[in-house]
């Protein structure tokens, strides 16, 4: 028993039930499917191509598919990333100011997600520009929310 600190005491207790990833998923009432999301993705694409970036950003950060599965989230993220990277640098600050605090919280989630994926890293400069303008207008609030929020995008 010399190395007792390394003993996994939970394996001796069948009721210990360590937290699993499933325990950390918030209790969603309904799970969004890709089919339900398609109209929104199409609308987002058309707004982005028509150049109405303010509306596109608002739409992208409104009611994101938290409860969807990983595949659906990836498809939606792709559409959001396309929209975000089409914005001209000079317009970012204005658009960020038009967002509600809730929308800003969602935006920062997509920025972090973008920076964590190869397709986002290719557009790293513009994501960082978004991030800079966001922290200038709202301070650390959206970041603290992002760090502690279990609803992922």
């Amino acid at each position: 028993m010399e190395d007792w600190r390394r003993i996994d005491i939970d394996s001796f207790d069948p009721n210990s039930g360590r937290l699993t990833n499933d325990d950390l998923i918030p209790p969603y009432a309904h799970h969004v499917t890709l089919q339900e999301l398609q109209p929104k993705i199409a609308q987002l694409r058309s707004l982005a191509t028509s150049g109405d970036m303010s509306s596109a950003t608002k739409l992208a950060t409104e009611d994101p598919p938290y409860s969807a599965d990983a595949n659906t989230k990836a498809v939606y993220f792709q559409a959001v990333l396309e929209a975000l990277t089409q914005v001209r640098q000079a317009d970012i600050a204005t658009i960020v100011k038009q967002l509600s605090p809730q929308q800003q919280d969602v935006l920062v989630k997509y920025l972090y997600k973008g920076m964590s994926l190869p397709e986002g890293q290719r557009q790293g400069g513009i994501l960082l520009a978004w991030f800079e303008k966001l922290t200038q207008s709202s301070g650390v609030n959206p970041i603290v929310h992002f760090l502690s929020d279990r609803r992922t995008v």
């Binding site: 605090p101 301070g139 650390v140 609030n141 970041i143 603290v144 502690s148």
Partner: peptide, 8 residues
Amino acid sequence: VNAPEGLP
């Protein structure tokens, strides 16, 4: 309501 400085 949010903390004014963002810190918890």
